[in-house]
Design a protein around this nucleic acid. Structure first.
Lengths: 144, 144
DNA sequence: GTCGATGTATCAAAGATGATTACAACGACA
DNA sequence: TGTCGTTGTAATCATCTTTGATACATCGAC
């Protein structure tokens, strides 16, 4: 099972907002045409990013801005803003292991800390990547 | 989006096979009652684990065994056996970014290596956890 | 040949995703 | 103040994935 495209789209959205902030009014429709999805999908994502304090969106006049310095936004912030489900637990556990079986009774005690450790490793990597680094790479490519 | 319960169920299945190998015939029905799912779900999982060389399943007489030493089976082996989709790519990318937009044209170049790095961190953790360690923890709990 | 179990097809139910339409509310500006 | 472009959001739909469930041919041991 894969992590949904909302995450990669969200990064795409942020890069667009930053890259075109001086030359275009970056509306949901503008972003949607770069990502190639429906504008409503972008608006919904922008709402999630706004709730997380990552972007600001202007009603009426239209357009969006980044809400805080790029080096204070990590990929984990973006991920949690748009993907987080069920208290941010990555691994879905089968719901009702049989308490009458010794294994069923103890499977959580056996696995929970390990699953958490795996998730921590992934999140640590994401936390170490800031939008600033990503934007620097992007600018290098966009200028060519 | 969460990783499906197939992964945690698969680990549960393996622990059951190992824990009860001397005292029960470990059939799909037996395992299903510990996990609390339909036996067919277990049989499908056993097929995936068998294809990965992790378990052996006996037709006719019934029952399953672990196919190789527990310290040569990692959580990553189990994960790949039952969850792997789309060449093992964890992050689903939006399909058709606009090649006429500089950002759309370069989004893969900007993100692919970073996404891979995140996935690598997660897989490295899983590779470092063997079924042997897990079984040792399990035995400690099951004996109480 | 019987019997219990596996291997697998098929269908249904439920949940998530993303596309799309529609429209009220908003803010800037003439 | 009224127009206009845009956002915020609801509603609906098709599609996909997961899981549950039934059914049954096939297998291996006895």
């Amino acid at each position: 099972m894969q992590i949904s495209s909302r995450f990669t789209i969200a990064v795409h959205v942020i890069i667009c907002i930053e890259a075109f902030k001086d030359t275009h009014k970056v509306t949901s429709e503008f972003i949607a045409s770069s990502v190639n999805v429906n504008p409503v999908v972008i608006r919904r994502l922008l709402q999630q990013l706004k709730k997380a304090g990552i972007v600001e969106v202007r009603r009426g006049s239209g357009g969006a801005d980044i809400a805080r310095p790029l080096d204070e936004i990590t990929l984990l912030d973006v991920y949690n803003a748009v993907e987080s489900v069920d208290n941010g637990i990555l691994f879905h556990f089968h719901e009702n292991p049989n308490p009458l079986c010794p294994v069923g009774r103890n499977i959580h005690a056996i696995m929970d800390s390990r699953l958490q450790e795996i998730q921590n490793a992934m999140e640590a990597k994401m936390r170490a990547m800031t939008l600033r680094e990503i934007m620097e790479d992007a600018n290098r490519l966009l200028e060519l």
